[in-house]
């Protein structure tokens, strides 16, 4: 479990993170979203006890971030923004070196190195110098390093950056599988599709938390939602009818299709369908168009920029 209370970080006179509090329960995946310079990496560095907050408190699985930082680092895995591997030694030697700091027994260490190198498809090239690896291979190796001691808490900064679609999917599937093992994950990403497919909750930050919620809550709390209706006949004749339904804000009919903007879709959409059926409209399709995380994110960030 990750807990942070009122984290603030200043670098000289520059405020990087401002009064940020969050809680991530065991086995949850939290997506940390925000524009460049929003303080995501600083937040992760504070939570991973690499840097100290100027004020505020951190607890990781009940351990105090200030007094027990070494024990915390022993139980977490961190995938940094840049892979950061020693290029003049082999992939195997890299993992062996990093894993040696976690006090794993030799047999366990070898077993884990083999397990993760095989998992990421690097086993056959384990003795090659990392300098000869592609960007994607280095990224996978860095991920293997973050996992080598089987941490129960993971901080992943752009885990699929530089990966080909197949590898990116494999990594995403792997992150999902971590949930079954009750691993707690904070995922820092600019890939909003990835965040929406992996995260239980997202936290949009810009020095401080602008919005934090479960994804479905975030989608339902957005005021205007659109729905698309396809008729077996011309749609225009129902436009004025639907405008009278309470909650319908706008209608836009073209051919046999109509797009409506509604307020409070959970209440309004059934009223729309009822009204159409009452007027014997021949409906082929009714689709509630939920906003994507990207649209929500842009709206929230946009609002904050104007504030």
């Amino acid at each position: 479990m990750i807990e942070a209370w009122n984290l603030t970080k200043k670098f000289d006179h520059v405020l990087a993170v401002d009064n940020l509090s969050l809680t991530v329960g065991q086995g949850q995946i939290l997506g940390l979203l925000g524009p460049n310079g929003a303080g995501k990496t600083t937040t992760i560095r504070m939570l991973a006890t690499l840097i100290s907050p100027t004020s505020g408190r951190i607890a990781i699985n009940g351990l105090d971030g200030k007094k027990e930082s070494s024990q915390i680092r022993a139980m977490i895995g961190l995938l940094t923004e840049a892979p950061g591997m020693y290029e003049k030694i082999s992939a195997y030697a890299n993992l062996s070196y990093f894993s040696s700091f976690y006090g794993l027994k030799e047999q366990k260490k070898e077993k884990n190195i083999e397990k993760f190198l095989k998992m990421f498809g690097l086993w056959d090239r384990r003795q090659e110098l990392v300098g000869t690896y592609s960007k994607g291979m280095k990224q996978k190796l860095a991920l293997a390093r973050a996992l080598i001691h089987e941490p129960k808490i993971l901080f992943l900064d752009e885990p699929t950056s530089g990966l080909d679609p197949e590898s990116a999917r494999m990594v995403r599937d792997f992150i999902v599988s971590l949930k079954e093992e009750k691993t707690t994950v904070i995922l820092c990403t600019h890939n909003l599709h990835e965040a929406s497919s992996l995260c239980d909750r997202v936290c949009i930050i810009k020095k401080q938390i602008i919005k934090e919620a479960a994804l479905h809550q975030l989608q339902s709390t957005q005021q205007a939602t659109e729905a698309e209706i396809i008729f077996a006949h011309h749609a225009q004749k129902y436009a004025s009818l639907l405008k009278k339904v309470p909650g319908v804000q706008q209608t836009d009919a073209k051919g046999n299709r109509m797009r409506i903007s509604v307020k409070n879709p959970e209440k309004t959409n059934p009223l729309v369908v009822k009204k159409l059926v009452e007027h014997e409209a021949r409906l082929i399709y009714f689709h509630e168009m939920k906003q994507s995380l990207e649209e929500i994110y842009l709206k929230i960030i946009g609002k904050d920029n104007h504030a």
């Binding site: 991973a48 690499l50 070494s70 024990q71 680092r73 022993a74 977490i76 961190l78 940094t80 840049a82 892979p83 950061g84 591997m85 020693y86 290029e87 990093f98 700091f101 976690y102 006090g103 860095a142 390093r145």
Partner: peptide
């Protein structure tokens, strides 16, 4: 400088090393 070149300082400092 080797650590800086390979950007290994952050992952190294993320281990329990003092």
């Amino acid at each position: 400088i080797m650590e800086k070149d390979s950007r290994t300082l952050e992952p190294l400092l993320a281990t329990p090393i003092k």
